[in-house]
Each structure stands twice: as C-alpha cells, then as structure tokens.
Design a protein around this nucleic acid. Sequence first.
DNA 1: AAAAGAAATTACCATATGGTAATTTTTTTT
DNA 2: AAAAAAAATTACCATATGGTAATTTCTTTT
Lengths: 192, 192
Amino acid sequence: MFSLLKNHINSRVLLTEEEFNICTKFFISKKLKKHQFLLNEGDVCKYIGFVNTGCLREYKIDNKGVEHILQFAIEDWWVSDLNSFLTGLPASYNIDALQDSDVLLLEKSAREELLKNCPKMERFFRLLIEANHVASQRRIADSLSASAEERYLKFIKTYPKLFEQVPQNQIASYLGITPQSLSRIRKELTQK
Amino acid sequence: MFSLLKNHINSRVLLTEEEFNICTKFFISKKLKKHQFLLNEGDVCKYIGFVNTGCLREYKIDNKGVEHILQFAIEDWWVSDLNSFLTGLPASYNIDALQDSDVLLLEKSAREELLKNCPKMERFFRLLIEANHVASQRRIADSLSASAEERYLKFIKTYPKLFEQVPQNQIASYLGITPQSLSRIRKELTQK
DNA sequence: AAAAGAAATTACCATATGGTAATTTTTTTT
DNA sequence: AAAAAAAATTACCATATGGTAATTTCTTTT
C-alpha cells in the first residue's frame, strides 16, 4: 500500500525506515470509481492526494461548459488544488477520476502533524512545489510559442505513460484544442 | 533603499525591526540600464531579484528568433529563473531590463545564510512560491480557454500598473500574440 | 533640433484551429 | 450478446490569428 510512496519519497529525501513509517500514519487510503470526484470547484480542497493506481485529472469548466484540464495525475504523482488546500479558499478547479483509482490522501492538519514529526519532509514538499513550478513555466512557454501539433508531439515525448493511458479527447483538452482538431493533427502526422 | 522590501515582507510575515535589519545585510543593490541583462539563457541564475524601481522581464527566444515573455517584474515584485537558481542548472530563460531599474539581489548562499539567521523567512519564501504557483495555474487556464481579446482584457484588469508601464509589443509577447494582432484587437475594442 | 531607431498601426492575404454535424469505432452497461 | 453510451474520425465552412509589408507615430540618440 505504501511501497510506491516509499520509493517516491526516498528518491527525493532520505528517510529512515522508522521516519517513513511515522509518515504513513498520516495518510488515508481511498478508492475512487471512474468519474468519482475528489474535489468540486467552490469547495475547499481538504487533501493533497498521492496516486497509487489509476488516473485523476484537475480541470475547470468555462462559461461555455467546456472542460479545460490543468493536470493529469497517474500513479506516482500528486494531485490537489494547492491554492485552496494551502489557503482554505474555495477551489477554482474540479478533480475527478478518469479511471478507477487508489489514492493516499493527506489532510491539511495531518500534513502539519507529519511535518512536525518528520521535519525532513519540509524539504520534500519544497522540492515538490519547485518541480511543479518548473513544469508550469515550461507549459506556459509552450503555450506561447508552440503550435498545437508541436504541443502534441512534446506531450507524447514528455508524458509517454499519460499518452498511453489517457483518452485523446482528454489530451486535446489538456493541449487547449478540440478533439476534432487533435484527430485532424494525428491524421496529418501519419501522412508525413 | 530597503523601505519597499520592508513593507513587502511585513505584509506577509511579521519581522521585528532587528530581524529585518539582519535580512537586509544579505542583499546586494544593483542598478540596471535599460536593455541590460540580469541573466542569459544557458548561464546559471545566481540571484533572485527584488525590484525597487523600473521593470524587468523574463523571456525565452524560440527557434524562429521570436521572444516569448514568461513574466514581467515591476517594483515590489521578484524575478529570477527559479529552477536554475534552486538547482544550479543552466537557465532556460533570459532576464533583462525594460527600463532603467534598481534591484536588490539575493545570492543563493546569501539566501541560505539569511534563512539560518532569520528562519521566519522560510515561511515568506514558501508564500512567495505558492503565490507564483497560483498565478501560473491561472495563466495556464486562461491560455486554454480564453481568446486573445479576453486574455488582453484580463491582463489589463489583473495588472493595471504593468499595462501602463509596459510597451504594447511586450504585452503582446506575454499574451502569446503578435504586436499586429494586439493592435487589431485594440482597434476592435474601441469600435465596440 | 535633427536624425535614427523603435513601436504602433493598417491592410491584404494565408493558415491554423474552431463549430457543427454526420458517421464509424470503441467502450461500457445491461 | 445486445444495447447504449462515449470516443474518434471525417468533412465542410467560419473565424481568429499570423506573416509580410508599408506607413505613421513616438522615443531615443546625437
């Protein structure tokens, strides 16, 4: 149940067996069915979640009813509306499961306790948000400079597992194009 | 010289007079002439900079030679290639001055000393990166869902000072459109 | 103040992507 | 296995934005 998380943390911060065991106490395990929500826009995000199996997505719905995906989270990734989680403000995004999924949830107060009991994890969470920041910068840069086709090819290269695991219409939403456009782009690529 | 920084920090973290004075010791003041570089892509980003006066920008140049602006920093804002600064890896972006500017620079080792001498600042820097993360998420969401015209109007609303201070072609670059397109959009807006 | 350089505007056509709708294929539910 | 639902594809036209180039306005340098 915690073996994936153990490797995940240990590849970033060195914890003793005992320290890691303390950390695990603060997580709650939860199974999500496909389409089940972990967070609704407007609610406060109570957890950050570590994905053990399956796949979730964080997205918003615009005023025309169209979904826009900010992030996928497959196994070995974290998911939350970090702003809402940290500030207690209502969430700007929804989070739901694209497939049946197992997640480990860390509540805000549990996280604070965890950090008290295992201060090394401060560093871990700093590294996490830094990695997130880097990825966001790159995605912004790509949205400014790359065509839909280029963004699609970069996506495949950067996230090969997501590419395999996630339906095309979801990838299109992540890339900021319609499923029809992505289908056309794919066709053009095969013809090259 | 430090009064702006003082208000900036105190609005986020409460420091005593003495604590703040300790912090100031770690900053280096630097004047930049318009067009002067603070960072070149490929170099390691040695500083994070707090802008006292003027305006800088963080940007990359794509393979066609076009500039794409990731961030502006006017007075009371921070600027750096955070990834490069934190990891020591070569920077992905350039930083230069759009106007003559005064900045306070904090070197990596100075920052570490500062944090040792004034641990309250840990919280400050965490809040800083969190705010950054929120802004990035919002910008990504906008790039997915909003038209160029909508992004322009949001920009004006969100950053009225930048709108006054920064040339249009730079704003266009930030929005991911050509200066000509922005000019056309502005014309259409006046006609509405 | 004059000259040079940079920024903004305008126009015309090109191209990428969107909207709508119909069809086919794949997946899920019964 | 059949039926229903969802996803992917295709096509046709519409629209937003880009590319190029010329002109005007504004800013900086001499």
